[in-house]
Design a binder for these strands. Structure first.
Lengths: 243, 243
DNA sequence: CGACAAATTGATGGCTGTCAAGACGTGTGG
DNA sequence: CCACACGTCTTGACAGCCATCAATTTGTCG
């Protein structure tokens, strides 16, 4: 089964490897089994110290932090190949929660084997650090988006990033991919209200740029979308007639 | 010299160690020397792959990303003990720049020795990963702040975090610490305009909560400051009479 | 059909960006 | 010593993006 395993800590950096190879190596020492979960399942809870770590084999999810007042900040979207629980592995506890948005299949391994991995397999430990650095990079990108772009641009940028990521995972074809999230999820990720997110999505539809309905994202004009996902296009963008 | 070295990859997790011990261990294999730089010096450039990595021994700086239109997103504030260049060490290139805001003293070591560290000193490699996880955590916090708090609350939260961090480093006394940044730096970190940042700072002064002038931050009411740095205090907060 | 979650739409208010001008401090040169 | 340039900080006016409230529609499920 030629599934790709992009971010699995056993894969080689910057290249794709076959899942079978990845799993084979894992099985040797670390893999404790596979886990299937339903939508809504909480995989990691902020403040807890899960005894198990996961690599996503299939399905999508969300990383998020809950705030005192009930609001929520979505940190990132979880896709196949993502590693879940690094914080629990090296720190005392998780600093955010992880939840399944669809049915998910997870590669499970034991947190206690992590130290053995560092001791006996430095190249894999290196990959883990690489993973963490990549996460840091993407969070920095998100800061830029939320800190400097208006609502429409944030959504456009998010769509481009999600689509590109999906495409590299083989989850997108001809600009169409499954995006099994709610508008509220996207709003919480971009620091926007649900209402404003909804209205911005409408604009993207009306302008024939992108559609996102029933869990499916369709990129109608990749060029325009990228254009809108840039900074300071505000004025030009907003003055453009709506179709 | 009993300086603290909090985040140095050689320190023990969750505890403080004497700088001397830290440096001693470093000298054995990895430390290549010390570096002194002036304010404004670019330590790392986004897109480059620096051959040298640093641990900050003294001084403060900024991590930031430059945007196409000339705007800037400050990712975080650099303080003594911080590690600089992890991305360059494990990825192809840096994803953000790092600049000195004051005179800085840096512990330098060679990027090429990083792999040897993973191979021969797994406990230190583990610490490096820990560092990366901590960074991820703080970036997530920043996302929450920028995504869900108004201007005044963002500044209040930033002051609390900066002060607490400074205090744990022995850089703050009685709520007073050096904060050698410009208002523009803070604005770029919080996703606010310079003008709005300035006006919010004025409010904090008028209410007798915090002052930040001439590079010195004075916390006048830690309690109130924390209160303001919370979510959804908006309405209560804004309705309070100004003095 | 009724209950519920999710998506949609309109009206209103305010936080915040932008523009513009001035004040303040510092260093340089005449 | 003063004039000037320069960066930083400060303040006011104005516009607009966006949050909030409220109500309706759509889709799903039993």
């Amino acid at each position: 089964m030629p599934t790709k395993c992009i971010n699995c800590p056993l894969r080689k950096r910057d290249v794709f490897v076959e899942m079978s190879e990845c799993e084979l190596a894992f099985m040797q020492e670390f893999k404790a089994g596979e886990l299937k979960v339903e939508p809504g399942t909480t995989l990691m809870l902020e403040g807890s110290s899960s005894p198990q770590l996961y690599t996503v084999l299939d399905g999508m999810g969300l990383r998020y932090k809950m705030l005192e007042n009930g609001e929520r900040q979505v940190i990132s979207f979880v896709m196949p190949g993502d590693f879940i629980g690094l914080q629990a592995g090296v720190m005392r506890e998780m600093k955010h929660s992880v939840e399944a948005s669809t049915d998910m299949v997870l590669c499970v391994f034991d947190r206690r084997t992590l130290w053995g991995l560092f001791r006996d397999h430095p190249e894999r430990a290196f990959d883990l650090t690489w993973l963490a650095a990549v996460e840091e990079h993407f969070l920095g990108e998100s800061l830029v988006v939320i800190g400097h772009m208006n609502g429409l641009a944030r959504i456009a940028r998010a769509f481009v990033r999600l689509h590109d990521r999906g495409e590299s995972l083989g989850l997108a074809q001809n600009g169409v991919m499954k995006l099994p999230y709610k508008q509220q999820d996207l709003a919480d990720a971009l620091g926007l209200s649900l209402v404003h997110t909804n209205k911005s999505l409408k604009k993207l539809r009306e302008r024939g740029i992108a559609e996102w309905r029933n869990g499916t994202l369709k990129i109608l004009s990749y060029g325009k979308l990228c254009e809108m996902g840039l900074l300071d296009e505000k004025r030009e963008m907003m003055k453009r007639p709506l179709i």
